[in-house]
Design a protein around this nucleic acid. Structure first.
Lengths: 138, 138
DNA sequence: GGTATCCTTGAAGCCCACTTCAAGGTCAAG
DNA sequence: CTTGACCTTGAAGTGGGCTTCAAGGATACC
């Protein structure tokens, strides 16, 4: 598929896909007839992977490195040293928090009787999940 | 608690907390003796809430508005019109994807026998989750 | 065969969430 | 009573991830 199609499938703009491609995070085939960039199914996986890591605050250069490990199916030993490893607890609490938000959205959106919890209550919940004390920055 | 303590609890830098405070997303009490900003437990919830929305690409002004609704416990009718509402599907697929990554990390980190799935396989998974076709940008 | 939509490139520009700076005041420990 | 770790402010600076621009070719539709 071409750039716009991939972009739509991945929920980003075509410009973003081009950007990742220029930066070498995506490596499309070329259509020899016109020089168009052609992305396969794996590219969508990469794109989603990139988007997830970005959402965790990982920078493009670091992501590029991780992807290059994937490309060469590098030794698992190295994997343990990945920037991902120390992200693990952060990812887990992020999941918890997003789930809390998703649950809240569910009840708020489809509960016409307005028996749903208030936004204030959701926020209170987020403050008291055991998972919060995950160092991270600095 | 004071700024640094909140920052650590929330997994961000003190500067970030100050920034949010300047922008009006957090509204701490003041210690009348010295002018220090004092944050209560709810502030942690707000901070985590902000961080989650940021990770979904929501901008600070929009988040500020959402928080102001929480402050005045605004009518649930309005809630349906929130920028959050159309984020719902995106949040759900993001959860799926993060879970896939977390599972992969689990098996990779603690599986010394290196029977764990490869990074390549994880990425493949991310490309074929039904959840991917969530419009989003632009 | 026009015209609207897509594609290419590198370079330049922009946005905005933070960071840093500068110039101080507070506080606890020793 | 000094050292070091914290806190305050507004203003200015930075970084990086996109976006846009400019100039041009390909494709697709009617």
């Amino acid at each position: 598929m071409r750039v716009t199609k991939l972009a739509r499938a991945g929920g980003v703009t075509a410009e973003t896909v081009r950007h990742y491609t220029r930066e070498g995070l995506l490596r499309p085939r070329r259509d020899p007839r016109n020089g168009y960039q052609l992305y396969d199914a794996e590219a969508l996986g990469r794109l989603r992977f990139i988007d997830c890591l970005r959402s965790l605050g990982v920078g493009l250069p670091e992501i590029k490195q991780i992807l290059s490990w994937a490309d060469q199916d590098s030794p698992p030993v190295v994997d343990r040293y990945t920037p991902l490893a120390d992200q693990a607890p952060r990812i887990r609490s992020r999941i918890q928090e997003l789930q809390a938000i998703a649950r809240w959205l569910d009840s708020t959106i489809r509960d016409d009787t307005s028996e749903a919890p208030s936004l204030r209550q959701l926020i209170e919940t987020l403050g008291s999940e055991k998972s919060a004390i995950v160092s991270g920055h600095q």
